[in-house]
Simulated assay, not measured.
Amino acid sequence: MDLFSRSLSDLLDTVGDLTDDDFARPSGCADWLVRDLVCHFVIDAQDVLITLVTPTADAVTHDAVTYWKVSHAPSDDPLAALTVRLAAAYGEPWMLKHHVQDVGRAAVRAAQIADPRLKVGTQDMVLAVADYLGAYVWEWTLHHLDLVAHLPHARRPHADALARCREVLERVGGAFPASWRDEDVLLVGTGRRAPTEAERAELGDLRIPFVLG
């Protein structure tokens, strides 16, 4: 749960440092500008707040890893186009920056006071709060890499969050070479960067990319 708060706080700090020009730059998500990705953070933070106040007495069905559905093909998110339109509706970058900080910091606070043993329901799944927040470390960290993909001056995700996400990826897909940096495992493993010829040889029969959604 601490890693959830750290990874989201780091992401929000990075957004807070962005200039107006940065919002118009491409992100690491195909067809999305930085502003579109930041708008997606607003939606995600709202989802966290909603889920944390949606307790259930039903039996747990998923954990922090099985929460994610794994495939090898790009996901078709029906909300992607809506997110782009919502982002454009903010008009000025400061409006979007203010909103994401508002709901994002609220999500951090809500996570800090949540009972980790409480069960919550989301997307037809039931998880313990600790596992639900643990699953979101993947979301915040991978999208943090997307946020800074074309912003070399921006701060990168915390090492602990990168290591945790590597652990998740290797649990669902198989081990990557131990010598690889965690960030490279995530970028190559999720198709955000093509492997070099040497990296491809090291991967052997490991099938990539892994799409978790």
Rank of each mutant, 00 (worst) to 15 (best):
R109A: 14
D58C: 00
A64R: 15
W94S: 15
V60Q: 14
T51L: 06
Q46L: 11
H40E: 11
M95P: 00
G91Y: 05
A59I: 02
T51A: 15
D102A: 05
H98Q: 15
W94Q: 12
A80R: 15
D58P: 00
R35K: 13
A106E: 13
T56N: 02
A87D: 07
E92F: 00
Y67D: 01
H40L: 06
A45E: 00
V34D: 01
T83N: 14
L52K: 03
K69V: 11
R35H: 14
D102L: 12
T66D: 06
R85Q: 14
R105D: 12
D63L: 06
V53W: 01
W94G: 08
V34T: 05
A107P: 05
W32G: 09
H98E: 02
G104M: 08
D63F: 03
V38W: 01
T83H: 13
A80W: 10
A106K: 13
V60K: 11
Y67M: 08
T51Q: 09
M95E: 12
I43S: 09
A87L: 10
V34G: 02
A57W: 03
L37D: 02
E92D: 09
A64H: 10
H99D: 15
C39A: 13
Y67W: 04
F41E: 07
W32Y: 11
F41G: 09
A81V: 09
P55K: 09
V60Y: 02
L79M: 02
V38H: 02
V42P: 07
V100S: 10
Y67N: 03
D36M: 03
V65T: 14
S75L: 03
R105N: 11
L96H: 08
K97S: 14
P78W: 09
L86W: 01
T66K: 02
T51S: 13
D36G: 14
A87M: 04
Y67A: 01
P78N: 07
A81D: 13
D36A: 02
T56C: 10
H99A: 15
W94H: 12
V60H: 06
K97Y: 00
D58A: 10
A59P: 03
W94Y: 07
D102S: 10
D44I: 15
A87S: 13
V103G: 03
V65P: 06
V65C: 07
L52I: 09
L86Q: 11
H99P: 00
A88K: 14
D58V: 01
S71Y: 12
T61I: 10
H62C: 00
